[in-house]
């Protein structure tokens, strides 16, 4: 039996004003997996996520989610198909309260009672957020904002969660906490695409990995194999 992938990206190319940032990449993610996309700053990781979420139109290639072609689909329609993203730099709404930010995550849902239960779940996952529920999100620390962004994304009950550099700019202790939460989300059955510059952490947290270099995928394989691959170790693990 061959399972069909939850997300299939084929021949994807994206350009900014004529300059290609992504030059034709293929990858897929199967249900239940945690896959990581690692690469240096400027490799095109964020651009790949933007293309998947409809924030930039691809110039070539196709994107399928659960077999449906979502190439060039509008951003706002994708969350209804089970896709959620924690954007680079968290993207919390700074002048909304923490509660309102969390509520925005459930924008597409109408089941009040279930939403209330999920809010409770997010607050028990991140007790700091409960303490600051009525504070505006812009006043939170970087780590708290990251937790808020993750909690907000969970509120749509995504099947596939895209995370763009959740470790960026956070103190190591906080990074550990954030990654522990990501692992627990994965255990709950959410499929995850984790984009990271912190290759070591990302490879330890994921099942499979792709390495992106200047808009091309140069290495693909099991995360455990990449961790012991001398080339990867030299280029991305600082050895």
């Amino acid at each position: 039996m061959t399972k069909s992938p939850m997300l299939r990206v084929a021949g994807l190319a994206v350009a900014y004003g004529g300059i290609r940032a992504i030059k034709g990449i293929d990858f897929e993610i199967y249900g239940g997996e945690t896959v990581t996309l690692i690469g240096a700053n400027g490799a095109g990781k964020t651009t790949t996520l933007r293309a998947i979420t409809g924030l930039v139109p691809p110039v070539a290639g196709s994107i399928h989610l659960n077999g449906r072609d979502i190439t060039g689909a509008t951003s706002f329609s994708l969350v209804r198909q089970g896709l959620a993203m924690v954007p680079e730099g968290r993207g919390v709404f700074p002048q909304l309260t923490v509660s309102e930010n969390v509520a925005m995550g459930a924008y597409i849902r109408d089941d009040k009672a279930e939403i209330a239960r999920d809010v409770e779940r997010v607050f028990s996952l991140f007790p700091r957020l409960r303490e600051r529920a009525q504070q505006s999100a812009g006043t939170l620390s970087g780590g708290e904002q990251q937790m808020l962004a993750i909690g907000r994304a969970l509120m749509s009950r995504p099947k596939l969660l895209l995370l763009d550099e959740p470790s960026m700019g956070l103190a190591p202790v906080i990074v550990q906490k954030v990654f522990a939460v990501i692992e627990s989300i994965a255990r709950d059955g959410v499929t995850i695409l984790l984009v990271e510059q912190n290759a070591n952490l990302a490879l330890r947290t994921s099942d499979r990995a792709y390495v992106l270099e200047s808009g091309l995928i140069t290495i693909a394989g099991k995360s455990a194999d990449l961790l012991s691959d001398p080339k990867v170790r030299a280029a991305y693990l600082g050895e």
Binding site: T53, G54, L55, F76, G91, Q95, L96, Y107
Partner: peptide
């Protein structure tokens, strides 16, 4: 709330499903 969210960050509001 969604109007204010859109004013503050339209792209992210779009990701939440806001048209």
């Amino acid at each position: 709330i969604s109007m204010r969210a859109t004013a503050q960050n339209p792209r992210v509001a779009g990701l939440m499903g806001v048209n």
